[in-house]
Write a protein that binds this DNA or RNA. Structure first.
Length: 282
DNA sequence: AAGGGACGCAACCGCGTACCC
DNA sequence: AGGGTACGCGGTTGCGTCCCT
């Protein structure tokens, strides 16, 4: 009946991973060509962990294609824009930032970006000004992140229903190198389902759509799948993130933001909206 | 130098969904 | 067809480190 449990919770180690555990997991996964089922991993790798813990450790820390260090200003900008459109769907956001994990982005959002936005007088949830004043531009449904974030929230349940038809398509035999694949239409449906008709004018949405057509999201580089445990994973950071606004260097944006009060921040409007407009000028 | 608060990251928890038998 | 379970995701927590007093 059903599947067997991944672990029995008894005799399963918890807490921080040791270097030895990391080495075992790494060696096992690399030695198996990147394909296995997580529930079998702990036993086969000689680990006293549950499969869930192994998966988390691998996806959030051990994967050779992960970038290290703080998010760049471009990445931060992208996260804000994507958050405005997608809400707290960190895995979807992470899928657009090669080498970054949902956990990493989520942490960065909660510890850095959120505070910056609040300091700027922007509600990190709605992406609208905290003082409640509506910005004239935000009335436009086509250009504002604030609007799209509201829209996203409103349409989330419907969106999820559509989305859930696609997720978890490779449950039992998970490719270690592949992140969850985004449904081809999920983002587009998020906006079109609520009547935004000119979304393709938005460089971000356009890029999202183009990328989904061109390549499976999350498939960044699988060359490391063919590595052996003895290879140096530090040599594998060959990710080159290319976003539509990699070429945009118009503002120093959040990283240079210092100490604007609410008065000043009201002039800043919605930072992602400003970005959108600057992008559309390209 | 030491204590305490703030911060940041890694890991865990709980839930929804798809899958297996 | 339906019960049970793995997987993936978002939210939350725990703990180590840093910084200030």
């Amino acid at each position: 009946m059903g599947r067997q449990p991944c672990c029995d919770k008894l005799g399963v180690k918890r807490g921080p991973w040791t270097a030895e555990e990391d080495r075992k997991l790494m060696a096992f996964i690399l030695g198996n060509g990147g394909r296995c089922c997580w529930r079998a991993v702990p036993k086969m790798a000689g680990l006293l962990r549950c499969g869930k813990s192994c998966r988390l450790r691998w996806t959030n820390y051990l994967r050779p294609d992960l970038k290290r260090g703080l998010l760049t200003d471009d990445e931060e900008r992208l996260v804000v824009d994507l958050h405005a459109k997608l809400g707290n769907r960190w895995s979807k956001i992470a899928a657009k930032l090669p080498g970054r994990t949902d956990n990493e982005i989520k942490n960065h959002w909660n510890t850095h970006i959120k505070k910056k936005l609040i300091k700027m007088g922007i509600d990190p949830v709605t992406h609208e000004p905290l003082d409640g004043r509506k910005q004239p531009q935000q009335e436009s449904p086509t250009t504002t992140s604030a609007h799209s974030s509201t829209v996203t929230a409103e349409s989330k349940s419907m969106d999820d229903q559509q989305e859930n038809k696609h997720v978890d398509t490779d449950k039992d035999v998970t490719s270690f190198g592949e992140e969850s694949s985004m449904p081809e239409s999920s983002i587009v449906n998020t906006t079109t389902s609520v009547g935004i008709t000119n979304h393709d004018q938005d460089p971000l949405v356009k890029w999202l759509m183009e990328e989904e057509e061109d390549m499976p999201i999350g498939v960044v580089d699988e060359s490391w799948l063919h590595l052996t445990a003895s290879d140096n994973i530090d040599d594998l950071n060959i990710i080159t993130a290319t976003t539509p606004w990699d070429i945009v260097r118009a503002t120093d944006w959040l990283l240079d933001y210092q100490d604007f009060g609410v008065e000043e921040s009201s002039l800043l409007v919605d930072v992602s909206m400003v970005d959108n407009s600057s992008r559309s000028n390209l």
